[in-house]
Every structure is written in structure tokens, then in C-alpha cells.
Design a protein around this nucleic acid. Structure first.
Lengths: 213, 213
DNA sequence: GCGTGGCACGTACGGTGTACGTCCGTCAAT
DNA sequence: ATTGACGGACGTACACCGTACGTGCCACGC
């Protein structure tokens, strides 16, 4: 039986699968090869080294983003949709998120979202420099949010939902932290993300209005 | 001559030093021990394992933040100062930044900035829930910004200041990216950070005003 | 004097990424 | 049909990693 021949996409897929099953730390060339039922060194016929394999993982994950842009919609809705699409990767590939954000890559997969966002911002009336700045700000916010989301479940450890043991914090040194312990302990990532995003949209909308005068 | 006895702070300092000199990837218990002129296993008398050593690194770096809070200043200035203080770590310890943000820790070092920020926000009039949300948004933005700043110099590689080879991008597929290549290539991190921060402050100021009516 | 406990250290084991050489199946040119 | 080249799968080997474990030293309380 001719098993599917080894190929770069198959290797990348196996890597993603392994990361999602056992976490980013568990990944190794030997484990990937074993999962594929193949010798370790065979991988190197298709991938130059581990680092570029991880780059390929990031690129593949990123290219899985589904952008459904409606040019007729309100521009704020278009921004919302694009930001949410980006965040979706954290749900589809939670364990891969750290790999993606910790590795800046220069490829069409990373450029397409950029192109879409710039087009949207420019169509609203922002000039080039502003569009780039606003985009960078959005990306920083989204990346930071994703890091928080995945950071809270590094290994899907026992729930441990409160970051800090309430009893342990000194009420005189940290009065606010103490009194807000319950709010700090719980975190509805979805709501949190939407809250910040709305604030950002509102801020750039204000900037747009102030610019029109 | 009685060389300074081995101790946890000395080990942590050596680790930070090593990371700053050779990058986060170069760190290993053997290298740290060698730098200290000491056997590898001696480290384990003061540190249970590598993971908690890195936690200690993060905590030490974080506790180096200098907060100079002026309770009489305008609250927007106080927020500005706290955000900038946080970002300072990326300048003092550029190579350590990734270690810090990729590791959520629960310790006074991580809690003090939180306490300060919450106190500031509450003093302005935000209720607990809002203060936590706003703080989380700010942290997400700052962390994302720091990641961008350190990501651009992963190994202090040859300048390589333009993320993408302008010639390589297809002008029909990526018209905006192409026409904004120069803006995308250059990035004044300081200005970029300030821009986003001002937008955020403006946004929450607007929220505060709207809340007062 | 004599335990005793902390600390530095060496050795060893199982893991990692990957350089290198070898083997074999396929295909082109003779 | 024979030969030659070549690409891909694979095994071996090396340097390095984190760390469990045992050994020896030295300063201390009794």
C-alpha cells in the first residue's frame, strides 16, 4: 500500500496537530516523525530545520483566518469583523497561538490581513501614515489580548481560574487588588475583547470626526 | 579567597545577563553555571528547576520598573506615566521582554503595577468592573506593543529594517501594502506607542465624560 | 569529639536538533 | 537493455540539554 508520500504540508499538519494535542513544549522533530510513522531525518528532506517548520506552522494557522469582508457595510462593522476574524485563530488553534504571535513572518499569509485592514482604513479617509499607525495599534491590542487568553491556559491546567489566591494578598499593601479580587479572578475573554475593541473603534471614529472639521 | 557564595539573586542576575548578551534561546543551566564559575548542579541548591528560574527572571525584571506616581497630577498624566514605566522594561532588558510577557506570574512584583493602575482608575471615578476592564485593555495594548518592538530584533540581526522586500509584493494583490511599503517598513516605536496610548486615553476619557451625564 | 545538615560537585540518563553517509527506487540517456 | 544520475527515506553519531542521584566537604550544636 503506497502510504501518502511525505510532504511539507503533511509535516506541517502533523506539527499543528501535535501542538494542539500536547502543547507547544511537547513538539520535537522526533515526535512529529513518529506521528507520521517516518524516520526523523526524512523530515529534513522537506523542511530545512525546526525554526522554519514553526514558521510554516504560523503561516498555515494564519492563512486559515476567514475574512468575510462586506464592502457595503459600515466601516466600523468591517473593522469589527476583521478583528474578530483574527481572534478566531485563538479558538481554532488555542495551543498554536503562542507560536504564531511569537514569530514575526514575512509572507503572503501574514500580509493579506494587513492589506485588507489598510484598504478598509484608507477607504474611510485615513491617509497612509494614519492607516498604518491605527493598524499597528489594533494588532498590538489583538496580540496582547490573545496572549492573555492563551496565557491563562498554558497547559489546560486544573481550572485555577483565579490568578491569585485571594487570601494571600495583603489588604494594606494591595487594597484595590484585594477588593477587586473577584473581578480580577474571573475573565470573560469574549466580553473583554469586545470591550477593548469598541473603545478602540470609538477612539479612531472620534479621530476621524475631528479630522473632518 | 572566599568568592561570593552562590545565591538565588546571583543566579537570577547571571541569567538576566546571559539573556541580554546572547538572547533568550542561548540560556541553559550549564551556561549560567559556567558564567558563575560553578558546577551545574550547584544551581539546584537554590532554584528548583529552570522554569521557576525563568519566573524569577521575569519577576526581577518586572520589579525593576520605576513608578513615580504623582497623585496631584492630572489622571491622564498618571496613566501615561504608568504605561511608559511599563514599557521601559523593553529598553532596559530588550531580550528579556519575551520571557516576561510569555510567563504569567502571581507575585507582588506583578501585582504592584496592577494595584497602582487600579487605584488611579478608581480615583477618577470608574467602578471596579470598569477599572479592571480598562486595565486589561491597557495591558493588552502594552504587551502587544512590546512584542512588536522586540520581535523586530529577535537576534539583533542585520538591520533588515523593512519587514518585507518591496520588490517582492505583488502590486495587484496587495496594492495598499505596496503603496504604503515605506510607512510599513519604518517604525518609530516610541512614536507608535505614544500614538496608541493617546488614543486609548482619549477613548476612556470619553467614556468617563459620557458616564457623568 | 561527634553527629548532622547544608552546599558544591561529578556522574549518568533520557531527551533534543541536525550533519553526514548509505541505501534504494525511479527515470533519462545511451 | 544497461547504465548513470538523482531524489528521498533512513540510521548513526555528535554536541548539547534538564535534572535525579550519590558523594564528599565543611561549619555548626551538642
Amino acid at each position: 500500500m503506497p502510504v501518502e508520500p511525505l510532504s511539507r504540508p503533511r509535516i506541517v499538519a502533523a506539527a499543528i496537530d501535535l501542538i494542539e494535542r500536547e502543547g507547544a513544549d511537547a513538539i520535537s522533530m522526533r515526535r512529529i516523525a513518529a506521528d507520521l510513522g517516518v524516520g526523523v531525518m526524512s523530515l529534513y528532506n522537506h523542511v530545512p530545520n525546526k525554526a522554519t517548520l514553526l514558521d510554516a506552522v504560523a503561516e498555515t494557522v494564519l492563512s486559515g483566518i476567514e475574512f468575510t469582508d462586506d464592502p457595503d457595510a459600515d466601516w466600523t462593522d468591517r473593522v469589527r469583523m476583521q478583528a474578530r476574524a483574527f481572534r478566531q485563530i485563538a479558538h481554532h488553534y488555542p495551543r498554536c497561538t503562542m507560536v504564531v504571535v511569537s514569530r514575526q513572518l514575512q509572507s503572503p499569509a501574514g500580509m493579506l490581513p494587513v492589506e485588507r485592514a489598510l484598504a478598509t482604513l484608507r477607504s474611510v479617509g485615513f491617509d497612509g501614515e494614519e492607516a498604518v499607525r491605527i493598524l499597528r495599534m489594533f494588532i498590538a491590542y489583538i496580540v496582547g489580548s490573545l496572549l492573555r487568553e492563551v496565557g491563562v491556559t498554558p497547559t489546560f491546567a486544573p481550572v485555577h481560574h483565579s490568578q491569585v489566591d485571594i487570601e494571600k494578598v495583603d489588604p494594606v499593601l494591595f487594597p484595590e487588588t484585594r477588593s477587586l479580587a473577584v473581578e480580577l479572578g474571573a475573565c470573560d475573554h469574549e466580553a473583554e475583547f469586545e470591550f477593548g475593541m469598541e473603545l478602540l473603534i470609538q477612539a479612531i471614529a472620534g479621530r476621524l470626526a475631528g479630522r473632518g472639521r
